[in-house]
Every structure is written in structure tokens, then in C-alpha cells.
Write a protein that binds this DNA or RNA. Structure first.
Lengths: 147, 147
DNA sequence: CTACTAAATGAAAATCGTTTTCAGTTAGCA
DNA sequence: TGCTAACTGAAAACGATTTTCATTTAGTAG
């Protein structure tokens, strides 16, 4: 389950932020996506319908949403950050083939116990996690064997 | 246990990389530290003894070492990456504070069962994994409460 | 020890993602 | 309808990282 647009708008209004068409579009875009999106990717997607929008506005809005804990900010390889709607209780992970780049998603990760243990030990309030497995898919393994 | 300088030099030589005084110093600096260091921090530490060294060289060397799996690259908040000596056989994971960037390492992850399950279901040969928890450390939580 | 060559170095410039500045626009409220 | 704080977009600034290029050096063969 994901936050509704209404819930997000209320949350923003409550803190004195205004609801602008740009912000609506940004929330909507992040919401539609089941993948993490970088600011640049969000910009590209929005630009098609909303040519006038500025990349700056996207940065600013994402910063606010992440600050309120409504979306989840993530830092992966390269110099890029990306954002995903926060799905309370559900999260999603990847299994990546290091040869061909195929990505398989999975959602069951059983990290609750570890999360509790870490949280207790470190006094962190844990908000999320990133889990990725890297390996070789069947096809690529067969190629390697053959070659 | 951490890799020895000798082991690292051999690993480099084996791939045709040369052992230069700069590389020695960089390896030595990362090795001495029990903390993650950013390229800029490494630069600062080295500059005191080796004023001539270039930041570029540090970037280049870190890239090679990380590529060979001898050090561990980490992306935390802000636009910064940092590096830590790798401890073979342990794999090591991070708990990151999304506010201040503090990183806590841990090594117990209990993902063996999940790995087997995924491997069976997807026919992947799984070689490794990346696990990061993101949250808010005690100090930052207290600040948030107060503010 | 000397000469050679591929690899490495450092300085400067280029690049990329992100942030700041600023003048003009707009949402939300009286 | 009018007001004002908040928002916007363009351009400039910024900081981290990468590329380019001329020079130097490690490792090796003679």
C-alpha cells in the first residue's frame, strides 16, 4: 500500500507548503513508478506533458517530500540519488545478473528480525533498507560454460 | 583481519598495475583508518607528508582498488563516496543515518536461507549481495524531536 | 647498469549532479 | 478582490568527479 495523493497533499498543507500543479505532477510521477527514479528521470517523464517545468523545482519538491518521510531517498552507485514512493510495510529488492544486467524483483526478505536487532543495538530508527543480490543468470552461465 | 600491504601489492602486480610511491601511501592511509574515508580526506591526510600528490591520483587508485575488491566503496548522504579496507570472508554491511551520514558497520546478515531460495527459484548463481539499512541515528532523532 | 615502453602522474579543463540567487508568478487566505 | 508568503524557472555558482595531455617513472629486457 502506498500513500494516497490526498494524504500527501494534506501532509504538505499541514506544514504550510502550497499545492502547486508542479508538485502534483511530481508526486504523481513518483507514485506511478515502481522503480526508483532519479531527479533527471522524473524531469524527463514530466517534460513530455509539462514542457515548462524546471529541474530545480523537482529537486526542491523531492527534498521536501523526503524530509517529510513520504518518499524514500536512496544513494546508489555513481553520483546519483533516486527516489521511490514509500510503501509502508512493503519493500522491494533486486536480483541482478552481473553479465547481462537482467533484473529480477522480489519482495520477501525476512529482514525484520535483523532490523529489530540492529535498531536495538544502535538506537537507530530504521526507515528502510536496500538489498541487492548479484549473480549470474542461467543464460549467461550457460554461455560461460560453453565459451 | 584485513589484507596485508604485500597481498595488495601482489594483487596489483598480477594485473599489470605498477607499484608507485603514491599508491603505496594511499593503500597505507586507507589501511590505517578504521573509518570510511572520502577521497578528499585521504588527500588531506597524505598531503602533509607528500605535498606533491594529486587528488586525481587518489581517485584513480581508489577506483582500481575497489574494482579488484580490495577496498569497499560506499555511497552515503550528500554527494560523497567513501572507502574502507575490505576484510575478506566477512562481508560487511552498513547502517546509514540519512540526516548526518554516520555509518555503522555490521557483519551478521543471515541471508543464506533467502539466497538459497532465490537461487533455486530463479536459476541464478548468486555471487554476492549488498545490504544497507537507512534510518535516523539517536542524535538526529533527538534534534528532530526538539526542533 | 642502461635503454625502452607501457603505465602512471599532476595540472588544467571539462563534466555532471546539485544548490543558490534573484526577479517575477501564484496559491491560499482575509 | 487584493495581499503576502511561498513557489517558480533561468542563470550562475558550486563541489565532486572525470578527462585530456604533456611529462615522468616502474618494471623489464638487453
Amino acid at each position: 500500500m502506498v500513500y494516497t495523493e490526498k494524504k500527501i497533499e494534506n501532509e504538505l498543507r499541514k506544514r504550510g507548503y502550497k499545492i502547486t500543479p508542479q508538485r502534483r505532477t511530481i508526486v504523481n510521477t513518483v507514485m506511478r513508478s515502481r522503480e526508483h527514479l532519479t531527479p533527471a528521470e522524473i524531469y524527463e517523464r514530466i517534460r513530455q506533458e509539462h514542457p515548462g517545468i524546471g529541474l530545480v523545482t523537482i529537486y526542491r519538491t523531492l527534498e521536501i517530500l523526503a524530509g517529510l518521510g513520504l518518499i524514500c531517498e536512496m544513494h546508489a552507485g555513481g553520483n546519483c540519488r533516486s527516489y521511490l514512493m514509500r510503501r509502508p510495510s512493503e519493500h522491494h529488492h533486486h536480483l541482478i545478473c552481473s553479465d547481462c544486467g537482467t533484473v529480477i524483483d522480489f519482495t520477501d526478505c525476512d529482514l525484520g528480525e535483523l532490523e529489530r536487532r540492529l535498531s536495538k543495538k544502535t538506537s537507530f530508527k530504521i526507515n528502510g533498507h536496500l538489498l541487492e543480490f548479484v549473480g549470474q543468470c542461467r543464460k549467461c552461465r550457460e554461455k560461460t560454460m560453453a565459451g
